[in-house]
C-alpha cells in the first residue's frame, strides 16, 4: 500500500506542475506558429534557386526535427523506465509515440511534395529518406508492441526494448547526408561553420520550429493527463472489484 502511494506521488506532482503550464504552452505555440506562418508565407523572400517552393521548408524541417527529438525523448524515457522503473517515464514514452509518428508522417509527406518539383521525383530510396521511413516504423512498432500482449507490463517491456534499440537510427538519420551520397541535401542549420541560410529565411524557420516544439509539448502533456486518468480509473475499478469479491484477493 505504501508503495502504491509512493507510485502515485510523482504523477500527482507532475500534474500539479504541468497542468498550469498548459495554457502558456498553447499560447506560445499559437504565437510562434502564427508569426512563423506570416513570415514563412508572406514576410520572407523566395529562394534564389527554388523560388517559392522553398517555403515548404518551414513546415517540413520543423516536423522532421520534432520527429527526431520526439524519438530521442522516447528513448530517454524508455531508458529511465528500464533502469529506474520510474512510473512516469513509461507514461511519457507511451504518450510521445503517436505524436512523434504524426510528425514523422508530416515530414515525409511534405518532403515528398517538395521533392517532386525540385528533384523531379516524389520519392527515392536514398539513405536519408529510407532512414526516416525506418523512424516511422519504429514509432508504429512501439505502439503496436504496447498493445500486442494481454498483460500491459509485458507489452511495455517489449516496447521499451524496441525503443532503445531503435535509437541507433537517430545518428543514422542525422548523418546519412554526410556519410553517404544522398539525393537529399546536407544540413543547413546544425552543421559546422554555422547555418547556410539567409537570416530572412532563418527567422520563419526558427519561429515554426518553436511553434512545432511547443505544440509537441502541449500534446504530450494532454495525453499524459489522459493516460494518468486512465490508470486511475483502472485502479479504482480494480479496487471496487476487490471490495465486491473479497475472496478473490
Amino acid at each position: 500500500m505504501a508503495k502504491a502511494l509512493h507510485r502515485l506521488a510523482n504523477p500527482a506532482r507532475f500534474l500539479r506542475i504541468a497542468s498550469p503550464l498548459l495554457p502558456w504552452i498553447a499560447a506560445g505555440a499559437a504565437v510562434c506558429g502564427g508569426l512563423g506562418l506570416w513570415f514563412g508565407l508572406v514576410g520572407s523572400p523566395p529562394d534564389y534557386q527554388q523560388g517559392d517552393a522553398a517555403r515548404i521548408m518551414y513546415v517540413h524541417v520543423p516536423a522532421a526535427w520534432n520527429a527526431l527529438a520526439g524519438y530521442a525523448g522516447l528513448a530517454v524515457a524508455s531508458a529511465i523506465a528500464l533502469v529506474w522503473r520510474h512510473p512516469l517515464a513509461l507514461v511519457a514514452a507511451r504518450c510521445i509515440a503517436p505524436i512523434g509518428a504524426c510528425f514523422t508522417v508530416i515530414a515525409i509527406a511534405t518532403g515528398s511534395i517538395w521533392g517532386h518539383p525540385m528533384w523531379g521525383t516524389w520519392w527515392v530510396w536514398d539513405a536519408r529518406l529510407t532512414s526516416v521511413v525506418v523512424l516511422l516504423f519504429l514509432y508504429l512498432g512501439y505502439i503496436a508492441l504496447l498493445h500486442a500482449f494481454d498483460e500491459q507490463e509485458t507489452g511495455e517491456r517489449a516496447a521499451t526494448v524496441l525503443a532503445l534499440i531503435g535509437a541507433v537510427n537517430l545518428p543514422v538519420i542525422k548523418f546519412s547526408v554526410d556519410w553517404w551520397n544522398t539525393l537529399h541535401q546536407p544540413a543547413s542549420i546544425l552543421r559546422f561553420g554555422g547555418p547556410s541560410i539567409d537570416p530572412a529565411m532563418l527567422l520563419p524557420l526558427m519561429l515554426m520550429a518553436g511553434g512545432f516544439t511547443l505544440l509537441f509539448a502541449y500534446l504530450v502533456i494532454i495525453r499524459m493527463q489522459t493516460e494518468l486518468a486512465r490508470r486511475r480509473v483502472m485502479a479504482l475499478r480494480r479496487a471496487a472489484l476487490a471490495v465486491s469479491q473479497p475472496g478473490d484477493a
Partner: peptide, 22 residues
C-alpha cells in the same frame, strides 16, 4: 506562390490537417 501553388499549399494543408486532427 510563383507557380508552386499546388505544392506549397498542399504541404501546408496536410500539415494543418494532421496537427489539427491530433
Amino acid at each position: 506562390m510563383g507557380g508552386y501553388a499546388g505544392y506549397v499549399w498542399s504541404a501546408y494543408a496536410i500539415t494543418a490537417l494532421i496537427l489539427g486532427l491530433l
